[in-house]
Computed example of a mutant assay.
Amino acid sequence: MATNPPSGDGHRNGAVKGRSQFQHPNGTWFKRDKSTGQIMDGKADGTKFKGVRREKPKGK
């Protein structure tokens, strides 16, 4: 399997599995656990989480 050197430099190779993110109407991005549906974390600065897939808005 290929690697992206140098190892241990603090970056992730590939996407985060088992999680998704969505944006609340107030602009905050939240991370949700895929298996339980519980909200795990929110970002106060209004930017998206890196490497986490986005949920499609309902009704669109």
Rank of each mutant, 00 (worst) to 15 (best):
M1Q: 06
M1E: 15
M1Y: 07
M1H: 14
A2S: 15
A2E: 14
T3Q: 15
T3V: 10
N4T: 07
N4Q: 14
N4K: 03
N4F: 05
N4A: 13
P5H: 05
P5E: 10
P5A: 07
P5W: 13
P6A: 14
S7E: 11
S7T: 08
S7W: 13
G8D: 09
G8S: 11
D9G: 09
G10L: 04
G10Y: 10
G10C: 14
R12L: 14
N13W: 11
N13E: 13
N13M: 13
A15E: 15
V16L: 08
K17E: 11
K17F: 04
G18F: 09
R19P: 02
R19T: 02
R19M: 05
R19Y: 11
S20D: 00
S20M: 00
Q21Y: 01
Q21F: 00
Q21T: 00
F22E: 01
Q23D: 05
H24M: 00
P25F: 01
P25A: 09
N26T: 11
G27V: 03
G27S: 04
T28P: 01
T28A: 11
W29G: 07
W29C: 03
K31I: 02
K31A: 06
K31N: 08
D33C: 04
D33L: 12
D33P: 02
K34V: 04
S35Y: 07
T36D: 15
T36C: 09
T36E: 12
Q38K: 10
Q38W: 03
I39W: 12
I39F: 14
I39L: 05
M40S: 07
D41P: 01
D41K: 08
G42R: 06
K43S: 03
K43Y: 09
A44F: 06
A44V: 03
A44C: 09
G46D: 00
G46H: 06
T47V: 00
K48Y: 02
F49Q: 03
F49A: 09
F49H: 01
K50P: 02
K50C: 05
G51K: 04
V52M: 10
V52Y: 08
V52W: 01
V52G: 08
R53Q: 14
R53I: 09
E55C: 09
K56R: 14
P57L: 04
P57F: 05
K58Q: 14
K58C: 02
G59H: 12
K60V: 10
